[in-house]
Design a protein around this nucleic acid. Sequence first.
DNA 1: AAACTCACCGAAAAGGTTTTCTGAACATAG
DNA 2: CTATGTTCAGAAAACCTTTTCGGTGAGTTT
Lengths: 340, 340
Amino acid sequence: MARAEPARAVTLSDVARLAGVSVATASKALNGRDQVKDSTRQRVVEAADQLSFSPNPLARGLLAGRTGTVGLLTSDLEGRFVIPILMGAEDAFGAGQVNVFLCDARGDTIREQYHLRALLSRRVDGLIVVGRQTDPRPSLGHDIPVPVVYAYAPSDDPADLSITPDNVSAGRLAVEHLVACGRTRIAHITGEHAYAAARDRAEGVQAALHAAGLELVGDVMYSEWSERWGRDAAAVLLTRHPEIDAVLCGSDQISRGALDTARDLGRTVPDDVAVMGFDNWEVLTTNARPELTSIDANLQQLGRTAAQRVFAALDGVDIGSGTEYVAGRLVIRGSTVARR
Amino acid sequence: MARAEPARAVTLSDVARLAGVSVATASKALNGRDQVKDSTRQRVVEAADQLSFSPNPLARGLLAGRTGTVGLLTSDLEGRFVIPILMGAEDAFGAGQVNVFLCDARGDTIREQYHLRALLSRRVDGLIVVGRQTDPRPSLGHDIPVPVVYAYAPSDDPADLSITPDNVSAGRLAVEHLVACGRTRIAHITGEHAYAAARDRAEGVQAALHAAGLELVGDVMYSEWSERWGRDAAAVLLTRHPEIDAVLCGSDQISRGALDTARDLGRTVPDDVAVMGFDNWEVLTTNARPELTSIDANLQQLGRTAAQRVFAALDGVDIGSGTEYVAGRLVIRGSTVARR
DNA sequence: AAACTCACCGAAAAGGTTTTCTGAACATAG
DNA sequence: CTATGTTCAGAAAACCTTTTCGGTGAGTTT
C-alpha cells in the first residue's frame, strides 16, 4: 500500500512525559534556552531522540509569526531561464532551514494574484518573483507584508528590489572576445526587438565596437529567437557581406542556425568566420560543430543572490531597492578559437 | 523599501466582532456549516469581505492534522524530463487548495533523506518523488506516514505506486508510423544501454518490426544521448547499409545528429530516408530541417496523474500499488512525411 | 533563625481556527 | 398552559509549541 498508518505524530508532551518533566521544560531544553539543568536537558534530548520527535512547524509558526517558508512565484516554468534561477534559490534556501513553495502562474496575471494570495495566507516569510524576460514587469505593490525580491524580470517600480542579468555588459564581453580574436568585421543577428535582452545586448555590442574603433557590418538584425531565423539571417548576411569574419548571435539557438548556414555556404568556422551566442545552453553549445562559444548569464548565481537578499531581509537587514545586475561570463569553445 | 509594514493580519475574531457574532458562529458561517441563520451568515460574509479576511492555514492545519501541502522531491531539476512533470503536478494541485514544496536532491541520497525529513516534519499531506530516469529507484520505504507516488522513475518496490512512461509501446508506436509510411528498411540508433528508456524503446521497436514481418537493419546502436553520437552512428549506418529508408532515433538530440549526417551525405529527408526521434523536445524538433517527427511522452499528463493519485489517497481512496504506464503520442512532422 | 539570593521547574497564556456541546428563544402540539 | 421540538448562537475545548512569570527548595548572609 502506498498509504501507511496515520500513526498520530509524536508531540512535545509525549517527550515531556517520557522524560518526566513538563512540556515547558521540555521545550526549553530542546531549544537551548537556559533555566534548565544540564542533566534534565540531557534526559529530554534522549527522550526526544528515542521518540524521534520533530516539532510541529504549524504550531511553532502560529506562535512565532514565522513559518520558515518562502514563496517562489514564477511566470513560466517552461522557459529554460527560470529553471536555473529556481535551482539557485532552492539551493540557497535549502541550506538554511527554509522550504520553498513553488507556484507557476503560467504568465497569467489572474493566476498570479491567486497564487500570491495563497502564499500570503500561508504566511510565507518572503517572496521571490521570477519572470521569463528581462523586461520590467508590473510590481506586486507595496502592501505585501513580507520582503519581495524580483529575479530575472525586474519590477517596474524602482522602490522594489530586482536582480537581473547585465545584458549590456554581456554584449560588450562578447565583442571584446571577438576583437581579441582578431575579428574586425562583425555582424549581429538577434531575437525579437520587443525583448529588452535583445536590445540591451545590442547596445553593449555597439558600445564595445565603438570603443574598439569598429563598426557593425550591416544593421542589427532583429527577428525571432529561433534556429530558423539564425539560418535565414546568416544566409542574407554572408552573401551580401562576404567580408564578415564574425557573426555574433543573440542566443545559442540563433548561433546554431548561423553555424548551419556557414557550413552550407562552404565557410569554415572558426577560421573563416567566427560564430558565438548567448545563454550557454549546453545542449546546443556542446553538440554543435564546432562547439559554440557563448556568454553564460550565471542564472544559478542570480537565483542564489535573490535568496540571499530575502534571507537578509528576514534578519531585519534593509536590503535596499533598485535593480542589481549580475554579470555574465564568457565560455570559450571551438566556434571562435581554433582548437590547438 | 522592499519590506512593508507588518500590519497584523486580520483574524476571525476581527470578523466576528465586526459582524457582531462570536468566533464560533463566524467560523460556521464562513465554512458553510448549517446551524446559522441566513441573515447572520450574510452579515459575517460581508464583514469578512470588508476586512478581506483569509483564514490562517497554520491554525487550521494545526487542528485538522492536514496542512494542504505536498512535497515534490526531485532528484534532478536540471534534467528536462522533470520540468514538465513538475508543471503538470503543480497545475493539478494548484487547482485544488494545495501548495507544493519543491525540493531538489541533486541526485544525492543524503540530500534526499535530509529533504524528506524536512518535508515530513512540515507535515506535508503527500509526496511525489520525481526521478530523472525511467530506471527503478530505491523506495523511500514504508514507514512514511503520508501517501507517496513515484513519477517517471518507478520505485523498485512493487508495493509502492509508480507512474512512468510506457517506452515499450512508444517504440512500437514509432515503428508502426514508419511502416505506415511505407518504410521497410529501418535502423535504430539510441542512447546509453544502461538506461531502461533506451532498452524499452528498442524492445518495442523489435516487437513492432516482428509483427510487421520486418527486421531491423543492423543491430540496435547504443551509445550516448547526444547529437554527436547521432551524427557518427548515422554516418556508419548509412554508408554500410545504403538501402536504409528510415532511421529511428532514441531521442530528438540523436535525431538532429542523424539529420545532419543525412544532409552531409546528400540523402534527402524524408523522401530518401525518414528520420524520427523520441521526447518531442520542441526546441529541437521544430527547428530542424525538416522538422522532426517524434514521440511525445506526455510528461505533463504524467505529472497530473501523479497529483491526482495523491489527491485520491488524501480522500482516503486506496490508490493501490504497482507501476502505471502512461502512453506516448505520435507527433508527425516533415522528417517522416513529405509536406504536401 | 530570619531574610535573602539563586537555580531550576511548571502552570498558564497565547497564537487562530474548528468542533462539540450547552443553552436560549421560539414555535408547535397536546 | 405545559410539554416537546426546532433553530440558531455562543462558550469552551482542542490542536501543539513557546514564553512569561510565579513558585519551590537549597544554599548563603546577617
